Amino acid sequence: MQEPQFDLFERDGRVQLVLRGAWTVSQIGSLDEALRAASNGLDSGNRPLIDCEQIAELDTAGAYLIDRTIREITAETPDIKGGEDAQALLIQARTVATRIEEAPKITEPGHGFIDLLERTGRGALHLWEELVESLSFFGAMLVSVAGVVLRPHKMRWTALVAVMEESGLDAVPIVAFLSFFVGMVVAFIGATTLSDFGATIFVVELVGFGLLRELAGVLAAIIIAGRTNSAFTAQIGAMKMRQEVDAMTTLGLEPMDVLVAPRVLAMVLMVPVLTFVAMVAGIAGGMTVSWMALDITPTVFLNRMQDYVPATQFWIGMSKAPVFGLVIALIGCRQGLQVGGSVQSLGQHTTKSVVQALFAIIVIDALFALFYMELGL
């Protein structure tokens, strides 16, 4: 391989650079200082000339070194004489170098009142964009689920059953365990407070109304949001990183039908089941505390609950569960499909998925409470 050589001179008011040999990354290391020394003192307002006719080989490293040398002499765009490949590499080097030089400077965020308003406005705009994109994804998801329901042969039953087992049945122990202790805590609080008024018997109504109407459904949804929602995002995000989702699209498979629809249907079916488990376990915890601390036997507890806690409270709590399941699956799948090609992106979207799901659960529960309050229930 020929060693790179050059002649750099000024003739007729024009800087000329004549190149010979192989200008590749493995050969040009010794030419850096020589080019800088040769370019000192050269200054011309005319367009320089780069003669590449005698170049044996040129790569991007050599093209950058040549272009840097010319830019240190003059800002004029050079005329290039030589092969088409050499001309293309030199033009590309000039374009990339110019783009880097013109990159905007990174400014530190301010801490004044105007900066606060700017960040607030930017956050509000981002929230609005997230809402619009979520509604768009919700519409696409409804179309996909409706298509699968109307044409059951398109449903991937194996995936549906697997998700139901993973997100539903496997979560029963932790939901029952935590709900049992929440029921005990509610009963303890009621016993401590109501004993001052001699009304400890009303612990039964406190446990019944609190768990059936609010706590059981919200607790089950929060557990699923932390346990299953993050799993959905991580699973789909890992598939995005390995380009499996792109492969599905190439094979003619719709990711919404393959990945989203089974998870949405599984959550809509299993969250009500987990909510029912939470209700039963929570009432059992409250009954245990009432029996041990207040001498209210299980028979008295259940009879009083049947007499004074209407079944409407049970159906109010159960009515929220499918909505919670739908929102959890929607957020988890959407964030998973937005994961980029890096592990950092996967972690960011998994965190965002859990936070958004918890926020949505609390907001939806508040909206349900207002709705049922207006109905007088």
Score class of each variant (00 low, 15 high):
Phe371Lys: 05
Ile361Phe: 12
Asp246Gln: 05
Val149Ile: 15
Ser167Thr: 07
Arg213Asp: 09
Leu150Trp: 10
Met164Ala: 15
Ile50Glu: 02
Leu178Tyr: 03
Arg242Ile: 05
Ser345Lys: 01
Ile201Leu: 11
Cys333Val: 02
Thr350Gln: 08
Thr120Phe: 10
Ser319Phe: 04
Leu259Phe: 04
Gln54Gly: 06
Gln243Cys: 02
Ala221Ile: 03
Thr351Ser: 08
Val327Phe: 11
Leu211Val: 03
Asp7Asn: 12
Trp157Ser: 10
Ala238Asn: 10
Val323Cys: 07
Thr24Cys: 02
Glu133Asp: 14
Ile66Thr: 07
Thr98Tyr: 08
Gln27Gly: 00
Glu53Trp: 02
Ala281Gly: 07
Ser30Gly: 14
Arg334Phe: 06
Phe368Gly: 05
Ala234Asn: 08
Thr98Glu: 15
Thr69Arg: 00
His111Ser: 12
Val289Met: 09
Gln2Pro: 15
Ala34Gln: 08
Phe113Glu: 09
Ala140Cys: 06
Met292Ile: 10
Arg11Asp: 14
Gln335Tyr: 12
Gly21Phe: 01
Ala146Ser: 12
Arg242Asp: 11
Leu367Ala: 15
Lys105Trp: 10
Leu58Met: 09
Ile361Gly: 13
Arg122Gly: 13
Thr77Glu: 14
Ile50Phe: 00
Ala278Arg: 02
Ala162Thr: 14
Ser39Ile: 00
Thr69Ala: 06
Ala61Asp: 04
Gly376Asn: 05
Ala176Asn: 09
Leu35Asp: 00
Arg304Ile: 09
Leu125Trp: 08
Gly121Cys: 10
Ile28Thr: 09
Val323Phe: 13
Gly13Val: 00
Trp315Val: 07
Ser136Lys: 12
Leu274Ala: 05
Arg94Gly: 08
Tyr64Gln: 13
Ala97Gln: 13
Phe197Leu: 11
Thr77Val: 13
Ile201Thr: 05
Met318Asp: 05
Asp7Glu: 12
Thr288Cys: 11
Glu165Pro: 01
Gly336Leu: 03
Ser345Cys: 02
Gln235Leu: 07
Val132His: 12
Thr24Arg: 00
Lys352Met: 14
